[in-house]
Amino acid sequence: MKQIRAISIIDDDPITVFGIKKMLNSINVCDDIRAFANGKEAIDHIKELITQNQPVPEVIFLDINMPIMDGWQFLEEFINLPLEEKIRINIVTSSIDLYDKKQWEYFRQKTHHLIDFKNKPLRKSEIAAITKAA
């Protein structure tokens, strides 16, 4: 029984994408896992789903530093999408910049979606806890 309908991984680093996918597969939680190399690709995909009236991913793993559209720019657009469903967004970054923490606080206050903040590397032991529908 798969608990999660669909998961998106947004990260420009293929190794991180490989790692998260591998961990998710090991707990066998979802069959529909997609990866996007930057925020732009991901948001375009989600918008497409909305226009086609299809369900959006319930859990999103989001990197911050990416080309073209970074994590924060993605969030800025994402929280303005007409989504009633509460989505879980796990920010996964190697940044320890205080600015990024502040940005996280800022977005948490601004949206009904659940936003979590994790430093790389993600551990297998914690992946199950953050891969639940919000």
Partner: peptide, 21 residues
């Protein structure tokens, strides 16, 4: 400093994760 920290951390995180695997 942040760039250095970020870049080194992202590589070391990958090392750590991949070695774990």
């Amino acid at each position: 400093a942040h760039i250095v920290s970020h870049n080194l951390r992202s590589h070391s995180a990958n090392f750590s994760m991949l070695l774990d695997f």
